[in-house]
């Protein structure tokens, strides 16, 4: 059974200057013990997607569709039921480890806070034991439970954030750009931590990032988002070896590599559309080299090609 089923999810923000269609009719699933990468340029709706699963969107957002987690539709839960989900069943880590921790609370108190919310009857010894285990599993000395956040470097803080997130053994971890604020070397260390966690804990991962490199090292499946739409979804190897959607293809080509015999700098011309006023038809057509007449007028349907989903007229027979 799938752990998470997202069905026809649409999210709109009402703003002064118009309605922003941040996510449009997105459907995908995440299996148990599976890791999924969500990639796209900034402003493609990938972060909104992550926050929406936890139902932490700002009040001006309206959500349509279904988010079925472990058989329950999260969108129909009461606020109280949803609150009990967060941190226990589904946990999230963010880009900036500097601002995600309360500077006047010791690391142990961050753990205790979480435990008290979800397991009020837990004894102190038990809490310390769980917190120590969590810290060890991210490669941090449990002695540092008594330290304050400022005593940690950026990479160490992100480790602590991950430890707090996994302390209650959630079934799903959502990581929104977990390494973007970090240096390459530290990024590599954090990726190792996540890799180890995937191996040892029974947990699924949604990794939201703009970096295809990170996705291909960590994820088994990948969802490519463009202008709020899911444009391609499938196994990472298949997508890498044979990208179907022109956007996926160009995104892959535009990543700088370290092969000395490949010196050509490729990029996607133009920029993503304004989501208040997106182009008609396929949202990608203004930047796409394969644009046909139909792309400008008709929105493509999502088609299944084996295990893969693609939203493009090249494959929908149109």
């Amino acid at each position: 059974m799938e752990l998470l089923n997202i069905r026809n999810l649409s999210i709109e923000y009402k703003t002064k200057s118009g309605t922003v269609k941040a996510v449009e009719d997105v459907t995908f699933e995440v299996g148990e013990h599976e890791s999924l990468g969500v990639v796209g340029e900034s402003g493609c709706g990938k972060s909104t997607l992550g926050v929406a699963i936890l139902r932490l969107l700002p009040p001006n957002a309206t959500t349509k569709g279904e988010i079925i987690f472990n058989g329950k539709n999260l969108l129909s839960l009461t606020n109280e039921e949803m609150r009990r989900m967060r941190g226990k069943e589904i946990a999230m880590i963010f880009q900036d480890p500097m601002t995600s921790l309360n500077p006047i609370m010791r690391v142990r108190d961050h753990f205790f806070e979480l435990f008290k919310v979800h397991e009020p009857s837990m004894k102190k010894e038990q809490m310390i034991k769980l917190a120590s285990e969590a810290l060890e599993s991210v490669g941090t000395d449990p002695k540092r439970l008594d330290n304050y956040p400022f005593e940690f470097s950026g990479g160490m803080r992100q480790r602590v954030m991950i430890a707090i997130a996994i302390a209650l053994k959630p079934k799903l971890l959502i990581a929104d750009e977990p390494t973007t604020a970090l240096d390459v070397v530290v990024q590599e260390q954090i990726m190792q931590v996540l890799k180890n966690l995937m191996k040892t804990k029974n947990m699924s991962l949604i990794l939201i990032t703009h970096d295809m490199g990170i996705v291909s090292e960590l994820a088994e499946k990948v969802t490519v988002m463009y202008a709020g739409n899911l444009v391609e979804h499938g196994e990472i190897k298949e997508i890498y070896n044979e990208p179907k959607h022109p956007y996926t293809k160009m995104l892959l080509e535009s990543i700088p590599n370290i092969k000395l015999d490949d010196m050509e700098l490729k990029y996607i011309p133009g920029s993503p559309p304004d989501l208040k006023n997106p182009p008609k038809g396929c949202k990608y057509y203004p930047r796409c080299p394969y644009t046909k007449e139909i792309c400008k007028t008709k929105e493509p349907k999502t088609v299944k090609l084996g295990d893969r989903k693609v939203k493009c007229h090249l494959y929908s027979g149109g």
Partner: peptide, 20 residues
Amino acid sequence: SIPIPDPNIKREKLIPKGEI
């Protein structure tokens, strides 16, 4: 440490201890 966007390649990584 540079992530390589190619899932076909599995590299032996060299990871340093701690941070700068």
